[in-house]
Design a binder for these strands. Structure first.
Lengths: 195, 195
DNA sequence: GCTGACCTGTGATGATCGTCACAAAATGGG
DNA sequence: CCCATTTTGTGACGATCATCACAGGTCAGC
């Protein structure tokens, strides 16, 4: 634990433990892949068109993923504390990312470097299991969010968010939320004001 | 290769090879997890509310995944030859499935039994890698489809499907497609007739 | 080749939402 | 505390789409 602050290591270790039952003894294998990285508001975690070569575990703050559609930014995800922010397809296949990930607040993360992570996985099969579980949890989230779009109207999506992710509604501005919900800013404002 | 027909084994082996570089020598580890399973039209691969305990590799025919929303069936995926049909969240976490998977045509599949697959993975780390790659490819598909919803209008979604999945448009009826695209059957009919 | 079940096309109508425009409110540096 | 910038609310209007209703088409089985 040389350049990782104690609090951050505790946090990421706890996270890995909830995923797999990762214990302190496995730490040495994965440790070299980790770095603390901080970002200022509006800094890029992943620039559009670049290949994603890391996973970012969010310690403090939040960031957003967004596409650029005809000059408009369409948010597709927000990552808060305890989340992993990444473009999993770009990461896994080495393709260029079609979207960006940007800090929405001052941000502290633990970066999992791809190359060093792969090296660790070759050494210790538990790291591969961790990777699979991580993938699983990302896929689960993705599906959950896709369902919202497929089954719900704008109003129902808003209500769903309010019930299941009240903290997201607290922290993300209305303008940013609207594109995430797939509706115009004005419409979201009106939905919110009807009761 | 006792109860798996030769043609089907060839096909699934080829599939696994495209995912990982799985070779015939690894076959013995995974073989006990596989069974050929056939379904009649409208048979269930996964009943809603049940836990998903298998992956189904589609050899011939196709099936659909759908939610029941206030009595209406909303299709969220179609699985064709070379696809893996499953509820990955239910499979991984043992939760009950919120949606159903049903044969839309007479269907031939190779079933990967969960328990036996896990046993094989414990024996042979290559099986775990295969599992991860499989998960990855499912996640990639899911994201691709979610993007359609988030970035496109009904008309654009239709055009996208026509360009990227023309075979899907050929094989799936308009009524079934409409809920997949998130629009009314009548609207899809009209979109299709404009040019 | 008839018949019933299912699928597709089409018109009329109303609801919802996007867009444009601008006002009000909140925010945050200096 | 004030001003500039950003964010949010609101009205008017039009476009798109869902819904209802029904007509025409297709297909399989008798």
């Amino acid at each position: 634990m040389l350049d990782l602050e104690a609090a951050a290591s505790q946090q990421v270790l706890h996270y890995m433990n909830t995923l797999t039952g990762f214990r302190a003894k496995d730490w040495s294998a994965i440790y070299p892949a980790l770095t603390i990285m901080s970002f200022k508001k509006d800094d890029w975690l992943l620039e559009p068109g670049k290949v994603c070569d890391a996973l970012f575990y969010i310690c403090k703050g939040y960031c957003r993923a967004f596409y650029n559609k005809d000059g408009k930014e369409i948010n597709t995800a927000f990552f808060f504390e305890e989340d992993i922010a990444t473009n999993i397809n770009s990461f896994a296949r080495g393709e260029r990312s079609e979207y960006a990930i940007q800090a929405a607040e001052p941000l502290t993360t633990i970066k999992f470097d791809k190359q060093r992570l792969y090296a660790a996985a070759a050494q210790d099969p538990d790291v591969e299991t961790l990777g699979r579980k991580c993938l699983q949890s990302i896929a689960a989230k993705q599906e959950q969010h896709a369902v919202i779009y497929k089954l719900m109207t704008a109003q129902e999506r808003y209500a769903y968010l309010a019930e299941h992710y009240p903290d997201m509604m607290q922290r993300v501005s209305l303008s940013q939320l609207s594109s995430y919900l797939g509706i115009a800013r004005e419409t979201l404002s009106r939905i919110r004001s009807r009761k």
